[in-house]
Design a binder for these strands. Structure first.
Lengths: 197, 197
DNA sequence: TAGATTTATTGACAAATGTCAAGAGGAATT
DNA sequence: AATTCCTCTTGACATTTGTCAATAAATCTA
């Protein structure tokens, strides 16, 4: 439990920065979130399953991906300190159209949809926090939309550098490429043109 | 006021479907939302201005757009029954990176950011409704991200047909093209290949 | 309604990116 | 350490899309 507290410190702080939370809510969260260690290469959520959990990524790196025909597309890359779900699936508890896997050894704090609803029921004020968090993620997503409409591969890769530089070496380039919606070969060539940044 | 009530019926219903709202909240909303008629071609929000209002589009058609170099990019197309803001700007009350303009004569119900905060203060339960609405828009946005990663122009245009068919004839093709991130000429050719659907 | 302006279409061509294939380089496993 | 597997790089070429230009069509405006 004390362990939980330490690992969830970032999350609690994040919530307190939005609006201080009561000690009771804090304790409920620490109690409900289950800490798990997940090795690199494991799948947290399989496509077509219902995303029954929300994960707070205490430490590590994840990606979500889906298949278009015979191609695999990386839709998001998520790193330490972020909340992870498959949005459509989690919000409506319907089958996911994407999978989520670890790109590194991870420590996650897991909260089930049902436990979250229970928390909303007991602490209605928590809706305020999650509204603001959802708004923040909404805006980040908007920026990814902007990125995908950029002119050329170099502009897209620069977006990646600006936003994911710290994780550059931990993410296989083929995933970066599909995240940017370009062929891996194109990314390779773009990188060498830009001088291997 | 009675007029307001009729025009906001869709919005009130939308909220009630999420969770029935109190009569007091309903009346406050009807009181705070200001109905405005806006002619086609008017700009509701200029880039660099702060998005100080949220609009409920009672009737009409809008688009948001921004400039990339010398090109204009249409980022969203919004139609009757939807809530309209510039997300990043409205949420954080910072300058917008996009403009919003009408593509048809519109009737909008306008609520200022400050009045909305006031409503949140007086009706904390309203956070629940807006959380769910934000979640819904979040998911829709995710689908637009999927669209932009589709293989070719035809697949993108089919996405448009599936989601905006009713507004096809009211939206200039050059805007549809930039929304899909293809050149207007490419859209024109794609359409003729698909048989002018 | 006529004229002016904007938008859409079509063709020719250029440019960027995708595809296929081969080989190099790393990482993982035994 | 050697082998195997996978990823990245590089080249050659195909394909798609973008760009430019001319014309047609549609829309706006006086």
């Amino acid at each position: 439990m004390q362990n939980n507290h330490a690992l969830l410190a970032t999350l609690i702080q994040l919530l307190n920065e939005i609006q201080p939370i009561s000690k009771k809510l804090e304790l409920s969260l620490i109690e409900q979130f289950k800490i798990e260690e997940v090795k690199k290469g494991k799948v947290l959520l399989y496509e077509k399953d219902i995303c029954k959990n929300l994960w707070f990524l205490c430490d590590g790196l994840l990606r979500s991906y889906h298949n278009i025909g015979d191609k695999e597309v990386t839709s998001r890359i998520m790193y330490t300190g972020h909340i992870v779900i498959s949005p459509g699936s989690f919000f409506t508890q319907t089958p996911a159209t994407e999978s989520i896997e670890t790109l590194a050894d991870c420590v996650v704090a897991k909260l089930s949809f049902d436990d979250l609803q229970d928390i909303y029921k007991r602490f209605p004020e928590f809706n305020y926090h999650t509204r603001l968090i959802t708004e923040q993620y909404f805006y980040k997503q908007e920026q990814r939309l902007y990125m995908l409409r950029k002119h050329d591969a170099a502009a897209k890769y620069n977006f990646f550098l600006e936003n994911y530089a710290d994780y550059l070496k931990d993410i296989p380039q083929k995933y970066i490429a599909s995240f940017l919606n370009i062929a891996p070969e194109t990314l390779s060539r773009t990188r060498s043109k830009l001088g291997k940044k």
